[in-house]
Simulated assay, not measured.
Amino acid sequence: MKSVAADLFYLPNLEFFASVLDSDQILLNPNDYYQRKSFFNRTQILLSNKVETLSIPVIGRRPRIPLRKIQIDYKQKWLQNHLRGLQSAYGKAPFFEYFFPEIEAIYEKEIPTLWDLNLELMTICLKFLQLPVKLEVVESWDGIRPEIDLRGMISPSIPFAERGIYTPFAYTQLFGLDFEPNLSVLDLLFCEGPSAKNILTKSIKKD
């Protein structure tokens, strides 16, 4: 069984899914510490005139907090903005109506912690991609020897091209003349539907 130790992201980008595509098991640890300016609370989508970053506000800025304890700040209007943003960006995409209701249903639960929200969204995205990958939550890394350890590798501060995980394979997007690579997996799902897994396969960086 090929296992990958990974970080849990908010609606992860294509680089993340390319990195776990051929794995059997993704290991996630809710006791890892929260890192600011990470993909734990942000993702990117394509609007008509720009790439937009969607960020989830969290309560408190204390350092060294386990991921499972990070609370979402629902007093801010981020939820409405994210749902409107997805509808504006992808409402006319071929597979929007097929996937969006299940995504929206997760948001409408108003899940208190960012960890639990991300985990539900990750689970539904794996289902949509038809990837037979098992998510395994571990409480400690002691004694665990994953075949691949991606923790800390995929970061917004470093261009994806420098990591050698993902190479863009262009698909039809709704806006713009130039292909925008490595957006949220929702961009691929809404635009390509059942072809998404095949496109991800072609996006794996070849040695």
Rank of each mutant, 00 (worst) to 15 (best):
F100L: 08
F169M: 15
L117I: 03
G85V: 02
L135P: 09
F160Q: 10
N118K: 01
Y98W: 13
D116H: 13
M153K: 15
K197Y: 11
E162N: 15
S184N: 05
P132M: 08
L117M: 05
I154K: 09
N118S: 05
L174C: 07
L67F: 03
I103H: 01
A170V: 01
P146Q: 09
F179T: 06
T167S: 11
T167F: 12
R84C: 02
P194M: 03
L200Y: 09
I199V: 11
I103S: 02
A170R: 05
K127T: 10
I158W: 06
V137C: 09
Q130A: 06
S195T: 12
E104P: 04
G143R: 08
A89Q: 02
Y107T: 07
S184Y: 02
Q130V: 12
Q87N: 11
L183Q: 00
L129P: 03
L174G: 10
P132I: 08
L150N: 11
I165F: 05
I70Y: 00
Q87H: 13
S155W: 13
L131H: 05
K109L: 12
R64I: 13
A170M: 04
D178T: 14
T167D: 12
W141A: 06
Y171V: 04
P146V: 12
E139W: 11
L67E: 02
S140G: 09
G143T: 07
P194R: 01
E162L: 14
Q87M: 11
I65F: 04
I106L: 02
I165V: 09
Q173K: 09
C191V: 05
E147R: 15
P63I: 04
L114N: 04
V133Q: 10
P63Y: 01
L114G: 00
T167Q: 14
I111M: 06
G143K: 05
P101K: 08
E120C: 06
K134G: 13
Q76R: 13
F99H: 09
K197M: 11
